[in-house]
């Protein structure tokens, strides 16, 4: 019987080793260890043995059974891993295929520029003020020291709706309205918005465009404060190594008036096609608020002074991104718009 047992064991182990799938191995398990298997049969047949042999024989059967079981489990683990590996291999994908596109839009380049400027000035304590695009002549011109018949009105031929109502030619009327509303109190605002002038549309002119103006009124506001503020703006907007230069100019609502150039961000000042070989790029107009403008809005120009500045986001966007034709901003070609997706930070 012992010999029989040893043969069974050898047979079982051979078959375990030969099983190449989980299923085959399970068949081996059932065949040898199942209720109807030969080992169970052997155990059942122990009753026929003499009583003194039974314990020895029982132990022997158990040893064989455990060994078969251990071998079987070991083999099972290997086969299961192989099966998983095969499955994984069959599931391999081509990871170079394109991903599922996530549809993302983006802001218009002018919005991008405007928001960048807004956020910069907000960080310096400015509020954002807005006002109507259809404006009274009074706020657009008269309150800004441009009475009817003033020669400087020529500079900005306007779209009138009635004799007293027009499409604003700049965002300065927002300043005039804010000053009137603040009733003589200090002001720190930035005013973005759409403006309109009687220009024929071409590569550098647009009858509709955007502007951002700033206004600061307070005690002892000096021209040096204007210069310092614009210098911070230029560095944040166009790079830390930008220098600024002020040139005398004329606007009816400021006195003194200046135009600000920045050192060319492309060539750094040595002269290139962006700065037209001058090393400098004209960016904005500014000045100290004219006392007439302060007085018209009810401010005591002896006590409070201020500065104002204004710039064109189209021009800034054209310079910054190298856009050559202002009409791109209003055509909405998706091949143009979608280029302003990525961050520059």
């Amino acid at each position: 019987m012992e010999a029989q047992l040893q043969e069974l064991k050898t047979q079982a182990l051979d078959q375990i080793a030969a099983a190449s799938t989980v299923k085959e191995l399970n068949d081996v398990r059932v065949a040898y260890l199942g209720k109807k298997g030969p080992i169970t049969d052997l155990l059942k047949g122990m009753g026929k043995l003499p009583a003194e042999e039974r314990p020895k024989m029982g132990a022997l059967v158990n040893v064989v059974r455990e060994e078969v079981t251990t071998q079987l489990e070991g083999r099972m683990a290997i086969l299961e891993e192989e099966a998983i590996n095969m499955k994984l291999q069959s599931e391999t994908i081509d990871i170079t295929l394109p991903g599922r596109p996530v549809k993302t839009g983006n802001s218009h380049p002018l919005t991008r520029v405007v928001e960048e400027i807004e956020d910069l000035f907000i960080s310096m304590g400015y509020e954002v003020a807005e006002g109507p695009e259809v404006e009274k002549d009074y706020y657009n011109f008269e309150a800004l020291n441009l009475p009817k018949g003033h020669p400087a009105r020529d500079m900005q031929d306007s779209f009138y709706i009635t004799e007293d109502i027009l499409l604003r030619t700049h965002t300065s009327p927002v300043q005039a309205r804010t000053m009137e509303a603040k009733g003589g109190e200090p002001i720190k605002i930035i005013c973005p918005g759409k403006v309109y002038r009687r220009d024929s549309d071409d590569a550098t002119h647009s009858h509709q465009f955007t502007q951002i103006e700033g206004l600061v009124i307070g005690e002892d506001i000096r021209m040096s404060d204007l210069k310092g503020t614009l210098s911070v703006f230029a560095k944040k907007m166009f790079g830390d190594d930008r220098e600024i230069r002020l040139r005398p100019s004329f606007f009816p609502f400021t006195e003194p008036s200046v135009e600000m150039d920045i050192s060319c961000f492309k060539c750094g000042g040595s002269g290139c096609n962006v700065c037209k070989k001058t090393g400098w790029i004209e960016i904005l107009g500014a000045g100290m608020v004219h006392p007439n403008v302060l007085e018209m809005a009810g401010y005591d120009s002896k006590r409070l002074t201020g500065f104002a500045f204004g710039m064109g986001p189209e021009r800034i966007a054209m310079l910054k991104y190298g856009v050559e034709d202002i009409r791109h901003f209003y055509t909405n070609d998706v091949r143009f718009l979608s280029q302003f997706q990525r961050t520059e930070l």
């Binding site: 954002v128 720190k188 005690e219 210069k227 310092g228 911070v232 230069r245 100290m288």
Partner: peptide, 27 residues
């Protein structure tokens, strides 16, 4: 003021920031 400044030279104007009390700012 402008006549004096422009002939004195705008480059000579220092760069400062307003000294008034700071305001929170925002949208």
């Amino acid at each position: 003021v402008e006549e004096i400044a422009r002939l004195y030279g705008y480059d000579e104007i220092p760069a400062t920031l307003p000294e008034a009390e700071t305001t929170p700012g925002g949208l």
